[in-house]
Write a protein that binds this DNA or RNA. Structure first.
Lengths: 158, 158
DNA sequence: ATCAGGATTGCTAATTTACGCCAAAAACCA
DNA sequence: TGGTTTTTGGCGTAAATTAGCAATCCTGAT
């Protein structure tokens, strides 16, 4: 499958908003009967357009009150430096995002979700700054979440 | 509902990984029979621990090849400045995250997902820099996604 | 240790949902 | 326009979800 028609796009948009919608309701929403709707969903999964279905939790209710961005610079840009960093960060459950980015002072942008500042400080000291090659570290903290979604725009497709 | 026991945590962890798991499989995974399992899921939803269920899409397959972080500074920190900014950014489908953050040079950190650099440049010029009060704008681009999950750690609860 | 009181579990049954099969309709291409 | 391919929608079967109810487990107090 290569090309997506308007119905496929509407299915993807609906599933981005509510992945637990029943196939019947989804079919009605996109103007299809249940049979072809479930077929298309399965095709979208098999073709890799849908990567996974996840539940989003309320972080503050779960005592995860602090979200932080950490800008990290490495001393050298060698494969072993990157590999070491990636290996550690991938194993940290506190890390929800980690990206290698362009820019002047930072190589990595890391987003962590933790209970509080005390936890964060320990994480920074015991984990991040222990990684070989990590030199510059600069943190900023989220005061207010204005937008936080996983849904991407599909407008450019139609 | 206030306190979560080990079974609740295992349910939340499983749903963070795969929200479309059948109730039967979920029940087996957490060591429960289907009935109490579905009851607990519903309670976790009603109590607000589970906010929503979403599908995550393959961005590059959907021609969304560029992810960018934009650091934005405002000229003044007045309510009308913040309100104007939030209103615009909330309406942009390209914006997947926008946070008011602490820090020296930036007030907002905005994450956008767009098809390419040309689209990004137009978005920056026509949308972001048009918002009253926006002064400093600095962009960095994601070269490699090392970690990108929505699942948060629940270790601290038990 | 024993015994209520409350909460949680597991079974069963009824409703709802999903999925494969097949003919009909639509779209596509020469 | 005619023939081919693809997609659709309805039907029937199988499966899953959800509510009701009795039994069990846990908790806390005497």
């Amino acid at each position: 499958m290569i090309k997506l028609d308007r119905t496929d796009r509407r299915i993807l948009e609906a599933l981005q908003e509510d992945s637990r919608i029943s196939n019947q309701d989804l079919a009605e929403k996109v103007g299809l009967s249940p049979s072809p709707c479930s077929r298309r969903v399965k095709q979208l999964e098999d073709a890799g357009f849908i990567e996974r279905y996840v539940a989003r939790l309320n972080r503050s209710k779960l005592d995860l009150k602090l979200t932080a961005y950490i800008q990290i610079a490495l001393d050298r840009h060698t494969p072993d430096r990157f590999e070491a960093f990636n290996n550690v960060v991938t194993q940290c459950p506190e890390v929800v995002e980690c990206h290698l980015v362009t820019g002047q002072s930072a190589d990595y942008t890391v987003k962590v979700v933790v209970p509080d500042m005390e936890y964060f400080q320990a994480f920074l000291l015991n984990t991040i700054t222990q990684i070989p090659g990590v030199t510059g570290v600069r943190s900023s903290f989220v005061m207010k979440r204005v937008v936080d979604t996983t849904a991407v725009s599909l407008q450019h497709l139609g």
